[in-house]
Amino acid sequence: MSPEEDMTPVLALIRRSFAFMDGRIDPPSSMHRLTVDAIARQAAEGEVWLLEEVGAPVACVFLTPKPERLYIGKLAVDDAFRRQGLARQLIGHAEARARALDLGLLELESRIELTENHRAFIAMGFEKVGETAHPGYDRTTGYTFRRVLPPQGRNTG
């Protein structure tokens, strides 16, 4: 998406998709502080990608290049479209973008309580490489997952 586009539908998708976390994760999700302006900044400074159905977003992902890695954030799939491979499709796109940017790693974070997400990320080739704690917490609140991208084969043909 370009930063000039209307980010309201993206914000609505993220809020709907992350609503199940309310009361389940501590501290509360950063999506509560997310604004359309912040999404436009992400589109300008990083990348925002959507999958759409009849012109409405049904899945999204934020990608942010960092040293040696591509950070994956706000991976969201609308409830009505879950279990159709859309998250896997967006992770595949993230891999293609990382390769285009000559980055060898994908990285993401997931809250400690979201064990079903951990299983999904592991099934997509990620491994847990670290633990994090939000400011003010003396316990682990999240995990860092990484996926090393194998070198692309060369056609010597």
Results as ranks from 00 to 15, higher is better:
137 Y>I: 03
141 T>P: 03
142 G>W: 09
147 R>N: 02
127 E>G: 06
136 G>S: 11
140 T>R: 11
123 A>D: 14
141 T>E: 14
127 E>N: 09
128 K>P: 03
128 K>V: 08
135 P>Y: 06
133 A>V: 08
122 I>H: 09
129 V>N: 06
129 V>Q: 08
136 G>L: 09
131 E>I: 00
145 F>S: 01
140 T>C: 15
135 P>W: 04
140 T>A: 12
136 G>R: 13
147 R>K: 15
143 Y>T: 02
120 A>P: 08
128 K>C: 10
120 A>D: 04
149 L>P: 00
125 G>I: 00
144 T>H: 07
132 T>Y: 03
143 Y>R: 02
141 T>Y: 06
137 Y>C: 09
119 R>A: 15
148 V>M: 11
146 R>D: 02
138 D>P: 03
136 G>H: 12
125 G>Y: 04
147 R>I: 01
132 T>L: 12
134 H>E: 14
140 T>F: 03
119 R>D: 15
138 D>R: 11
119 R>Y: 08
124 M>I: 03
133 A>W: 09
146 R>G: 00
119 R>H: 13
130 G>Q: 04
122 I>D: 05
123 A>V: 03
143 Y>I: 03
146 R>T: 15
139 R>I: 13
149 L>F: 09
133 A>R: 14
149 L>Y: 06
143 Y>C: 06
125 G>S: 10
128 K>I: 10
134 H>P: 05
137 Y>G: 05
140 T>G: 03
119 R>F: 05
141 T>K: 02
119 R>P: 00
133 A>N: 10
124 M>T: 01
131 E>P: 00
143 Y>D: 05
137 Y>T: 04
131 E>V: 03
120 A>H: 09
145 F>A: 06
145 F>M: 08
133 A>F: 09
142 G>I: 02
123 A>S: 14
149 L>S: 02
126 F>I: 01
142 G>V: 07
125 G>Q: 04
125 G>V: 02
143 Y>M: 06
120 A>W: 03
144 T>V: 15
137 Y>K: 13
140 T>K: 07
127 E>I: 13
142 G>T: 07
146 R>S: 04
119 R>C: 03
130 G>E: 06
143 Y>E: 04
140 T>S: 08
121 F>T: 01
134 H>T: 09
136 G>N: 11
128 K>Y: 00
140 T>P: 00
131 E>A: 08
141 T>L: 10
140 T>D: 01
134 H>Q: 12
121 F>K: 01
124 M>N: 13
123 A>L: 06
141 T>Q: 07
123 A>T: 05
139 R>D: 12
135 P>H: 08
135 P>K: 08
145 F>Q: 05
123 A>G: 14
127 E>W: 08
147 R>L: 01
131 E>L: 02
122 I>L: 13
129 V>M: 07
135 P>D: 11
144 T>M: 10
133 A>C: 12
146 R>Q: 15
138 D>T: 11
120 A>Q: 12
146 R>F: 07
144 T>N: 07
147 R>E: 01
130 G>W: 04
121 F>Y: 15
132 T>A: 09
128 K>D: 00
129 V>P: 03
138 D>E: 12
149 L>H: 09
133 A>M: 07
135 P>I: 05
127 E>P: 00
134 H>W: 07
129 V>K: 05
148 V>C: 06
137 Y>W: 14
143 Y>G: 01
138 D>H: 11
123 A>W: 06
139 R>G: 07
139 R>M: 10
